[in-house]
Design a protein around this nucleic acid. Structure first.
Lengths: 234, 234
DNA sequence: GGGACGCTTCGGCTGGGGCCGAACTGTGGG
DNA sequence: CCCACAGTTCGGCCCCAGCCGAAGCGTCCC
């Protein structure tokens, strides 16, 4: 007998139904490739254990792996996967955190201010950049979202190369979890993020997806006030 | 120690990680309230078993229940839940169905043509209705989606009452799983669906979410050609 | 070649989750 | 008042998934 729709959904959900695997997947939303040992440390389990978990996730199509020498690198299978995980993580929170430490609060602040969502910008930074690009006529939202010829010229002037392989759409809208408004995703979103990271306009804050924003981020055309706000309080 | 984000996500996913529970949730996407016994029959498990599963889902916030006399009615907690399930079910399909029976094919056809997505229309019908409303200036997509004053007047003329309680947005865009284009959701989408069902313009095909479309659906302003297409092949 | 290192396989332990039948509770109807 | 019926609780069964330590495999580097 054919597998029913319910069985398929259950099989899929089962991949995330273990806290070790869920932790791994959430960590991978940063879009980078992690080694098995790194993930074992993160999830606080032994290497044999993480090895099995990664097998499950790769076999299930949630992750892809690249073997390089004696290393096993895994990453999320694609942007759609990351977006779905973001949504799930946002919808799951029945955590009624009452007393929060100062450290946790400032961490959450940094997360809300600027972070990566898989391979593009999110948080206040992501939304502000999207807004600015729209105001400057670089994006057109009349029918979904599209990049204008002016937008393409702008990318060119910045020296940003967009590789839109495998039919990935150039631009795509992605709902921001903290801002509840759309930010820019797609190949262009990824290219902008890669460019800014490569030039040190933003840098990753270790241990999470949060970003530290430097003044040079103004190169992306953001208003001075916005840049100042994004940089305040470290 | 506080529960980590990974544990929360895992706890949430665990609700769907059982094929019986997953089957139940998918059945409930039709937006109706089902009794425990009905669901037990559907999922082919005993009544004690379904009772426990429903406890899990209600406690987890995925379902809400109403007790009426000796009956226990459950339904999905809300439209967002339904939409998330739709997305998950659409992303999960690693089913490589090769040989499909004629019955299954015609069933899938009916499903793609017209169905409910929780409490609003989906499939070709949902997308066509959304397009028509947009062309006639009843919806405005310049910034997200909104209903125009002309749209409100149209609803009034049809005698459709929109109850937008608990701050549910009047209109909302929901990605159609089969058409891969947005269709109308939100309180207005629900009201249109309820109205059409109530007047017999569409009727449910038993055993699923698919709808049978009558010629009277033209009352919603759909072009003749579209109506004919939606009605063809039963 | 040999040792360090990243990862995997294997065996065995353990807990928890899903399932049912039987018995129980509570509601509704004649 | 008694029976039919919806749903629940209880006890017990079984299976599987997650975990680890020990041992094995393959790669890199000196």
């Amino acid at each position: 007998m054919a597998t029913t729709e319910g069985q398929e959904l259950a099989a899929w959900a089962r991949m995330l139904a273990d806290s070790t695997r869920a932790t791994v997947c959430l960590a991978l939303i940063d879009g980078r490739a992690w080694t098995a040992t790194e993930l074992a440390q993160l999830a606080k389990v032994s290497r044999p254990t993480i090895s099995e978990h990664l097998n499950v996730l790769v076999d299930g199509g949630l992750l892809t792996e690249v073997r390089q020498g004696r290393h096993r690198y895994v990453r999320l299978a694609g942007p759609e996967t990351a977006e779905l995980l973001e949504e799930l993580a946002a919808l799951a929170p029945r955590s009624t955190e009452v007393a929060t430490s100062l450290a946790a609060a400032s961490k959450r602040d940094a997360f809300a201010r600027a972070r990566t969502c898989y391979d593009h910008f999110a948080g206040k930074l992501g939304v502000a950049l999207t807004d600015t690009m729209t105001e400057r006529g670089l994006l057109d939202w009349s029918e979904g979202v599209a990049i204008t010829s002016k937008g393409l010229r702008w990318l060119d002037e910045l020296g940003i190369v967009v590789d839109s392989h495998r039919g990935r759409p150039a631009v795509r809208s992605c709902l921001d979890v903290t801002e509840r408004r759309p930010h820019l995703a797609g190949a262009v979103g990824a290219a902008l993020c890669r460019h800014a990271l490569g030039h040190g306009w933003v840098t990753r804050i270790p241990g999470g997806r949060a970003l530290r924003v430097s003044g040079a981020v103004a190169e992306l055309g953001l208003p001075d006030g916005t840049v100042r706000e994004l940089r305040s309080r470290v």
